[in-house]
Computed example of a mutant assay.
Amino acid sequence: MPGPSGRLPFAALILLIGINLRPSLASIGPLLDQIQRDTGLDDTSASLLTSLPVLLMGLCLLGTGRVQATLGRRGGVAAGLAALAFAGLARWLWPTVPALLASAVVGGVGIAVVQALMPAIIRERAGAQTAMLMGFYSTAIMGGAALASFAAPRLALAHGWAAGTGVWALPALVGLMVWWRAMGNLGQPASVRTASMVSRNSRSWLLLSFFGLGTGAYTLVLAWLPPYYTGLGWSAQNAGALLSALTIAEVAAGTGVALAVDRFPDRRPLMLLAAGTLFVGLLCLAFAPLALSWLAALLCGLGIGALFPLGLIVAMDHGTDAVEAGQIAGFVQGGGYVLAAFLPLIAGVLRQHLADLAPAWWLMAALCLVLALIAVRLRPGARITS
């Protein structure tokens, strides 16, 4: 597996990029109550701080081919990291509702651009180790969320919520500088296929649905788990620590998938185990949120942490080369994030009108059964010809 330069292994570089792709989202949940008190946002509007960037991520990812043709791969990833840095600085310097919403838009686009381009780059550079490297890339994404959910409320306690949500501009700037220096030799692929070709295959829609529902569970807990527990009397720091524990479990599961996935040419046993684990964790949240809080976080984290990389890995399994695998991943992520964006929004509406988030956990538990049905249908060996 060739590195981008003699000094920086490729695996280390993708970990650095991945860790920057969730703090702008993960730092919001633990501080949402404070943000609402200071800005007057209601629950439905507050849900847009997570739903809006996820929706934009999806819409932008559906245009992977155009992104690559317009910005190039090196420039595209750099532009995405620059957008994340700008979004963080906007929150830090201008802690107002317009700045929060604008930063959600800019940050969502930045994440989308990076995630549109990285799978094909990994496939091209990693070769036979693609599944393992995709697992570590996904794990790095979840690791960034764990760091942000733990650190944001503690930074906010000392410096205010603007610093807790905006300080993540700094690692994005570091990632931008390292990426630009390390990937000077990154060229363009020979051809770019359009997402419309991929969308004509019904199997693409199964892959999209699996990724979207699994990611929907991720965005749901990212946005609403801390407010759920602050509503039950926990402090913002303890609620953030619970979300951090959940995301650490995600990292552990993602690492396990990365190390074990090549031993399972048929990915379905892993997919079913992940969906089942998440299902049990959601039942714990709905039935006994206080008594089983840490068990619920562990189980939900393990389930989500395995579903996220598996959704990407199984999608890329269907490509015959790096370009096709990247295009399939772009389509699956794009439509999947559009689908995932609605779950935090639905939860916000439920909280505003029912003053209770338990129905959201029940809804996600029911969707876990749908995930299992989809997984059963994803037998190995198929290809999507584009």
Rank of each mutant, 00 (worst) to 15 (best):
M57K: 12
I111G: 06
M118E: 00
W92A: 08
G72I: 08
M57A: 08
L101N: 04
L101I: 08
L81E: 09
A148T: 08
V105D: 05
A152N: 06
A128Y: 11
A79P: 05
P95N: 13
M57F: 14
A146C: 15
S138K: 01
G127Q: 10
G143M: 04
P98C: 13
G110N: 07
L100W: 14
W94L: 06
M134Q: 07
A112T: 13
A131D: 11
A78F: 04
T130E: 04
I141A: 00
Y137W: 13
T64I: 03
R73C: 02
Q68V: 02
R66D: 05
L62W: 01
G127W: 08
V105H: 06
G72V: 06
F86Q: 09
A79G: 12
T130N: 14
L133I: 10
V105R: 03
P119G: 07
A85L: 07
A120I: 05
L55S: 14
R74I: 09
P95Y: 13
M134D: 08
G108P: 06
F150W: 07
M142T: 02
S149Q: 04
G80D: 11
L101W: 06
R91D: 08
V54R: 07
G76R: 07
E124S: 15
G110C: 04
M142I: 02
V67A: 07
A112H: 14
F136W: 11
W92T: 06
M57T: 03
S138D: 03
T139N: 02
A102C: 11
T130R: 14
T96S: 13
A83W: 12
G80W: 09
